[in-house]
Nucleic acid binder design. Sequence first.
DNA 1: GCCAACGTTGGC
DNA 2: GCCAACGTTGGC
Length: 164
Amino acid sequence: MTRTWLFKSEPDEFSFDDLLTRPDQTEPWGGVRNYQARNHLKEAGLGDRVLIYHSSIAEPCVAGVAEIVRTAYPDPSAFDEASPYHDPKSDPEAPRWFAVDVRAVARLPRPVTRTAMKAHPALAEMRLLRRGMRLSILPVEPDELEVVLALGGWELRDVQPVDL
DNA sequence: GCCAACGTTGGC
DNA sequence: GCCAACGTTGGC
């Protein structure tokens, strides 16, 4: 069963366009240091869709769609003393933090702004839009995915992983 | 820049 | 185990 997730990113740090420039349009997604978000990361399965959401900008939006191409593995940055995400309490024998690899599917024909999502009645229950929601990795319901894609000028079949 | 919401830390 | 203090996130 293919699920959908929403990954937050500050585009100044890493944007959907950055993902498109990576080799094979694939990038490890790590540095998540919140247990609830980590648990979501560990649930992500091969081929799950990912909405890439740009936060902390004037107009926060979903910029594009990616997919999981490697499921959770120990996050190397946790063991890297030079990394800002270094966690001395994470033991390589029992890793605390995990990363996944994501590959771009495509940019949305038009970005779906937070404002547009908030204005849509079908998205009233969307996790992302709840007050005080700070999790950087969130599940997205199937019907919510359809609405977001429609707002972005796409339909669900446009993001079916090709190998399914 | 403000501030609400929330997570983490550490004293007790 | 409680809870105050503090730090961070992220929309506005």
